[in-house]
Amino acid sequence: MSRYSIEEFIKQTEQVDKGEGFFELETPRMLEVNLDGQVWAKAGSMVAYHGEMRFVREGILEHGLGTAFKKALTGEGASLMKANGRGKLYLADSGKKIVILKLQNDSIFINGNDLLAFEPSIKWKIKLMKRIAGMMAGGLFNVYCEGTGMIAFTTHYEPLTLRVTPGQPVITDPNATVAWSGNLQPVIQTDISFKTFLGRGSGESIQMRFEGDGFVVVQPYEEVYMNSKQG
């Protein structure tokens, strides 16, 4: 078989069942959902499927937040879709790496833009970070997930998890913060001198301060979200 033949390419990249269950990492940046029922997924994340499926888009802001915040949030980041049916569903988000977690009566906060998919057994609700709302263009909301079931979220490049222990707070850049344990409540703080160090001429540097006992997941990338006012 020729090294660069179509047959060799198919052999190297062909989908292979790994038998891992409901969620499988088909590649580090492609999630396979073995669907028999329903799954929640980020709107626009479907890249392929086979079987019988029906997709319904749903604005997550209908779950408890008023219309006042709708304009401040991006359309993509503020929407989920429900996939119903049977078959194999393939999800991806801008080539970002995918992390799969199986919650066992656990809870976790995930940045609304980074949540890729989760089982319907997971209870979820939106948490708006009001202090940030007036300072940042986006990344204003997080999804609190709890219960037992599978969750998939995405990161730009490899994630790093930092332990938060009593007396040892962790401070992060909101644009690089992906997720944190459900028992932690970050405090938003500003650092005027820090923005000078970064060479940012306008606005204060906004930071998230985590204190207590838990963890926070960061990525080596500052994700900047555009809102509707900025086009």
Results as ranks from 00 to 15, higher is better:
50 H>R: 09
47 V>M: 13
25 L>G: 01
17 D>W: 08
31 L>I: 05
31 L>R: 02
28 P>M: 04
13 T>P: 11
24 E>T: 14
26 E>P: 06
35 L>T: 06
43 A>M: 14
52 E>A: 12
20 E>N: 14
18 K>G: 14
22 F>Q: 02
13 T>D: 13
48 A>R: 07
41 A>C: 15
29 R>W: 05
39 V>D: 01
42 K>V: 02
17 D>Q: 15
46 M>I: 14
21 G>K: 09
45 S>C: 03
37 G>Y: 10
52 E>M: 07
23 F>G: 00
36 D>A: 14
40 W>K: 05
18 K>M: 15
15 Q>D: 15
47 V>G: 06
50 H>N: 12
45 S>F: 03
23 F>D: 00
38 Q>K: 12
44 G>E: 03
17 D>N: 15
21 G>I: 04
21 G>H: 07
22 F>C: 05
24 E>C: 05
32 E>D: 10
48 A>L: 07
16 V>N: 08
51 G>P: 00
15 Q>P: 05
26 E>K: 08
41 A>R: 07
27 T>Y: 06
41 A>K: 07
21 G>A: 07
43 A>C: 07
19 G>F: 15
44 G>T: 07
16 V>I: 14
47 V>E: 14
39 V>S: 04
36 D>L: 07
28 P>L: 03
31 L>E: 02
44 G>Y: 04
48 A>S: 10
36 D>K: 12
39 V>R: 02
